[in-house]
Design a protein around this nucleic acid. Structure first.
Lengths: 237, 237
DNA sequence: ATACCAATATAAGTATACATATTGGTCCTC
DNA sequence: GAGGACCAATATGTATACTTATATTGGTAT
């Protein structure tokens, strides 16, 4: 059974309710959204599993209203599916949809890389280099979770370097949608060494101010990831 | 208490209230969203103007709850801005943000065109031709609103032809976000004749199964629109 | 025995009542 | 006279009660 906060090391409060981080100035619905999206991305909530308004409301000790709003928020991010009068379920992405999403993501991340190549600053050069070094180190250590996080940092740095905050936002959202599936791929045999090599190609192209090469390198990187993911899923079904 | 919804399925018409087309199987919140988004896209609701929960609830003769949900839905589409405890306002997009959005849109629509070029069917050839003919006719008539709608149809047809429903969705959403600003541009001097010419280039590339040319033609088309838009905005500020 | 219809139960959609935060105005003090 | 603080009004966030739709289950009829 997917217990949302089971691993979050969360502080618990009265009556066994899980606590919502008491972020001041933040609405309950928003707090719930963060909590639930985190649970989905981390895989604690399986795709396809049903989200019960009442159950979640009880679990967090709030009324149904903020829960409903949180569902709407997440539905807008394509993280849950709302079927009228039939409840909300964690969106389970079918292989066909994954292909489509990676196709779009490849293009968006490619655009990030292209823009980054035109706009890199000196400070950014050192920053990305430092991130990459840590990625290599994590790869040698073999700590998958750390590797995954640093990988995320690398891509995030490129989003920022594109200096297009709307693009960065869109790309981030998309990345988030497939996060639940991506995390599994990192564990595939050659994925770590491949990732490091592909990142190097991307980095070099950007640092060489070669937008086209940066674009295609990034596109290949993301597409390959998508292909790997599909292989992985195919092996299961 | 007057229970307005005591009947099922009927159109709800209450004295002095605007009617909400009660599309069966559709929630009030969703109907409201469509209505309000339409009003925003059509320019009846100025960017920056405040949306009052109570006022809208009264105007449509519903309670605040579905209004709130509609706001959340629209906020997720980046059409309104929600500031905690400070109400909702129609999102006003700054020039900088518009540049960014058009950059992304150019890439996405470009991808649509590229995919379409690889996947056109015979039926689609005749369909797009028919749409284009109508566009030309509207251009000669000079009916701006009709022209605008047919233009939309043209792009929509290409979204569909990409056979990537996720991509189509994303692109549609983005187009919707800037719709309020775009509609003004159609009225600019040479926009109609330019549009027709550019559409022809795009169409030819797609029908010739030339993905790269289709991509760049579409990108130029959308980007040019962005440049025009910026001229338009610059003239105002 | 199977299929279809009806009834009941359960959960989502909606309404309303209540709590709380923000805003604006007024009054008091410096 | 100006600025700050406090109070009141208003609107949003939240809770709860109620309505409606859908799904499931059981019974009856073919």
């Amino acid at each position: 059974m997917a217990n949302i906060g089971a691993h979050s090391g969360g502080k618990r409060v009265k009556n066994g309710h899980e606590t919502l981080v008491a972020s001041p100035g933040m609405t309950l619905a928003e707090s719930l959204r963060q909590k639930l999206e985190g649970a989905i991305a981390a895989g604690h909530l399986e795709p396809g599993s049903r989200l019960d308004e009442q159950e979640i409301a009880q679990r967090f000790g709030v009324s149904r209203t903020p829960v409903r709003e949180a569902f709407r928020l997440m539905a807008a991010n394509n993280l849950v599916e709302l079927r009228g009068r039939q409840g909300a379920t964690v969106r389970s992405i079918k292989a066909q949809a994954l292909i489509e999403m990676f196709q779009v993501m490849a293009e968006l991340e490619g655009l990030c890389a292209r823009l980054a190549a035109r706009r890199v600053s000196q400070a950014w050069r050192t920053e990305i280099g430092e991130i990459h070094q840590r990625l290599v180190a994590a790869g040698e250590t073999g700590d998958i979770d750390v590797f995954y996080d640093i990988n995320q940092e690398f891509h995030e740095a490129i989003y920022e370097a594109s200096r297009n905050s709307f693009l960065a936002d869109q790309t981030r959202k998309l990345r988030n949608q497939v996060a639940a599936y991506r995390r599994r791929v990192t564990r595939m045999p050659n994925r770590i060494v491949d990732t490091v090599r592909e990142h190097e190609a991307i980095m070099q192209a950007i640092l060489a101010h070669d937008p086209e090469r940066a674009h295609s390198a990034m596109r290949d990187h993301v597409s390959l990831l998508g292909d790997n993911l599909l292989d992985f899923l195919a092996a299961f079904e």
